[in-house]
Amino acid sequence: MASSGPIISVERMSKHYRVHQRSAGLLSALGSLVSRRHDIKRAVEEISFAISPGERVGFLGPNGAGKTTTLKVLAGLLHPTSGSVQVAGFVPQRREARFLQQITLVMGQKQQLLWDLPPADTFQLNRAVYDVPQAVFNDTLAELDRLLGLSAISRIPTRQLSLGERMKCELAAALLHRPRVLFLDEPTIGLDVSMQVTLREFVRRYNERFGATVLLTSHYMDDVAALCPRVIVIDRGTLRYDGDLPGLVRSIRPHKRVTLRLGGTPCDQGRAEDQLRRVGELLSWDGTQAVLQIGKDQLREGVAHLLGVLPVLDLTVEDPPLEEVMRDLFERSAP
């Protein structure tokens, strides 16, 4: 396979569902046998993007935006209604064995581990299913063990593992065949912060170690910010942004957030507030600490001015929190 072209390319891909309409009750159930009303739900509408081998890309969007649908189309679980999709040189929906051998899908909300048996047994099953030679299997498992620390948990029945331990094993089970493309759908959902960091770190190292392409959806902005140099935003089925994260923040919120701590006497407060309001939007102010929102263009000028006129003890300049940026983005797009 040529390594120069994109490993994933999606062109004007749409996915529509037909949903049956039926109200509750026996009569309407009988009625629906005769004539059914359909509604078309447009889950994904003409999105296009391309991803190069080895990239880590984050998929962002509110619930029901079409993220999971897109991932499932890419994994070959759903047929697109229109448009074309190529992954690793294959058309996913044909689900050819050679294609499936190269991808994996991890769903944070569902598990493939056998509930009553230790994960090690699921690993063995997957070895048979993916036809992994024993030597390669041992190598991969050792590598995954080194990265995730599996040996302590893989012999305990899955039902007795904690959520975090289970997710580690889920990832391991999904990666035993060394896929080149990883689809991760909310892999860190429900996990505590330190476990999130562990898994995130693992995905990054796996990506660097094996050059695998990673496509990730997550509710936790931190996951995406830490892991993905590139983000794709979809909202209600349409693609709204494709680029790097700072660019996204700039385009949504062309502001910086300036936090100031002021010295001086309380009687100066009124004057200080006037000065602050003159420079930017005052988000909070308690007499000594102020949070200001200042447009990027006015930043230099405004900060210089404030330093000149106010007894500033401390000053930090930050981007607005990512969660806020996203909220802004999706609120703005709402009808």
């Binding site: 994994a75 070959g76 499936l100 991808i103 994996t104 899908l105 569902k110 493939q112 036809d131």
Partner: peptide
Amino acid sequence: RTGTLDFILLKPADAQFL
């Protein structure tokens, strides 16, 4: 029922056999 059939469909072997 639980949607984990997806995992089976992703395996590179005949789904009916699996």
